[in-house]
Design a protein around this nucleic acid. Structure first.
Lengths: 108, 108
DNA sequence: TTACGGTATAACTATATAGTAATATATGTG
DNA sequence: CACATATATTACTATATAGTTATACCGTAA
């Protein structure tokens, strides 16, 4: 994988997916889904986001395959699509922790 | 890690780092650095980016710790800071490949 | 049917930033 | 010294999008 060339289209597709994770509100939503399936109302309460705003963010996450959804009556239940999101975030958090550790060493 | 709460500041920091990877041009630069240390001129040639544009992107990647740099004479050499970038991109590319595979099944 | 709760969508504003052109800052080289 | 080469920075424009308000849609209960 990723041999010589990456076409502009491939680069755009990968960037588009990283961009879905590049918003604090969407990360907050994903974090709220770590415990399992949740309704939109649950997510609103957990994150404090506005209803319309959260709905838009959920559409983005759904369109790019980061969450799955299921309708039951008037409610929509969302959940993480797979473990990749957690792996991605864990990697990024690890980087952040390393930075913080390095910084605190310097300033101690 | 990532127990109960994530503060708004933590979410911003993580999102900021994903955002660095959320641009096709920056992914192209990182891809160009897979082979090892390269000068800015090398990167311009590999990516076709404008000089000022590439320089700005490199500052972003450097500020967030994705690349390291070293000056030698009039040139600046950049390289990947660690293997995390490759791991992150590999995970994201894997997701993309799964999607493509699923789509081609449907349309076949 | 009407009314209501839960969710999605449209229209809008404000902000962030990618890309470019021009300029600045070094660092050689003659 | 003057001049060229390599990189960084500034100022600007155009575009994308996060958040909000208002509204539409869909189930369900009375």
């Amino acid at each position: 994988m990723a041999g010589r060339h990456l076409t502009p289209e491939q680069l755009r597709h990968i960037a588009e997916r990283f961009k879905a994770l590049a918003e604090p509100s969407r990360l907050d939503i994903l974090h709220a889904l770590k415990g399992g399936e949740r309704t939109v109302s649950d997510i609103l309460e957990a994150t404090g986001l506005g209803q319309a705003n959260a709905s838009k963010h959920l559409q983005v996450l759904y369109a790019l395959g980061f969450v799955q959804r299921r309708k039951d009556g008037a409610s929509t239940y969302y959940k993480l699509a797979d473990a990749d999101v957690l792996r991605l975030c864990a990697l990024m958090c690890g980087r952040l922790e390393k930075e913080t550790a390095a910084r605190s060493k310097v300033f101690r």
